[in-house]
Design a protein around this nucleic acid. Sequence first.
DNA 1: GATGGATTTGACCAAGTGGTCAATTCACGT
DNA 2: ACGTGAATTGACCACTTGGTCAAATCCATC
Lengths: 212, 212
Amino acid sequence: MTDTAPHPRPARSAGRELKEKGLFEAARAVFAEEGFKGATTAEIARRAGVPKANLHYYFPTKEALYRAVTEEILTDWLAAASSFDEKDDPKEAITAYIGAKMDLARADPLGSRIWASEILRGAPVIKDFLETTLAEWIASREAIMRRWIEAGKIRPLEPRYFFYMIWATTQHYADFEDQIRALNGGVPLSDEQFQKAKAQVVDTILHGITPL
Amino acid sequence: MTDTAPHPRPARSAGRELKEKGLFEAARAVFAEEGFKGATTAEIARRAGVPKANLHYYFPTKEALYRAVTEEILTDWLAAASSFDEKDDPKEAITAYIGAKMDLARADPLGSRIWASEILRGAPVIKDFLETTLAEWIASREAIMRRWIEAGKIRPLEPRYFFYMIWATTQHYADFEDQIRALNGGVPLSDEQFQKAKAQVVDTILHGITPL
DNA sequence: GATGGATTTGACCAAGTGGTCAATTCACGT
DNA sequence: ACGTGAATTGACCACTTGGTCAAATCCATC
């Protein structure tokens, strides 16, 4: 009320952000379905409901748009990864981490699919992330797990392959959603089914690494 | 020596099959890297070392070539799957199956990647396979596992989600090979590393489902 | 209501795209 | 040597691609 100019500059900025968001989300969907090369700027613009020339006003090139999309995905990945560090107890940490990864796969399957598609084509855009940030992440968590192993808290194993199993299994529910749907009578997993799957993944892996 | 006509008709046929094979293999590589839409017939022809027009002599359309490639992959998949049925004991059956899937991922990563790429784009070509052959396969193996559960041979679990875990984990070593390489100091897993990974996958999953 | 930068967009372009085709070359039986 | 069908391929085509651009339109400010 006291503000006589509710959106003097924000108006422009907000409009811009909204349109940019629309293009961004449309791009996520198309990149997830078609991959980087298969995606077309025309299709992205069409889904966002703007002329193609307008897309190029907000994002100079298809690759710039793609890079913006991937960056957000890496951020989300790291956020989920942080749940591994919140507990000192192996079971709690692993349970939290698997849960976070499963929830992310459920909440943002497109992100997971874009990641998968990016790896499949040789990871040209995120290669640096893999070689630096991700490599450091897994190295330090590997050290943590080795301490757990030495303390007899979990069975001896190669931590890397353990993480691969978690990544593969959790991301499978996003990347292969269409296959899972086909095997589920043509309908997507319900929330109950997904929760059960999540519990089973946690349960099986936890049992798999618990000492006798 | 006795045969004065070493390749009278076989020559033609063999030449044809060889060229077809070359195109087929080139297509596998390009489809695996770029996906169906991203792959170009020009690139496939270039890798096979033949003019593009020649490709269309052997395979009328890009999609016909793609279908030929996918059909072989489904055959390989089923062959690996049969190893599940060779043993009556759960541990032996699952060990054999995981081993076969891991070996397939190692021997033919391209096939696994084409499958993944096909699912990512909505499985237009193999949807029928998923809904019929694969659905039947998992349904009957689900029944087998339920019997094992009732007999107390394995812990109670939802067989479907168990198979998803196996598929995800084993295929991960093919589909995410580039990521694994990046996390392995830039070099692919050696044979020893891969064998160790395979053993650990078997071991963890087996422990994960073995009753206390 | 005039100014000027931000935004919008139809028209356009050079470079690919999957696919065709007619002309040529090949390999074999005669 | 010759005839014939299989195989090869350069040239071509209609269409799509990512990206450009100049002209139009908006809209906060003065």
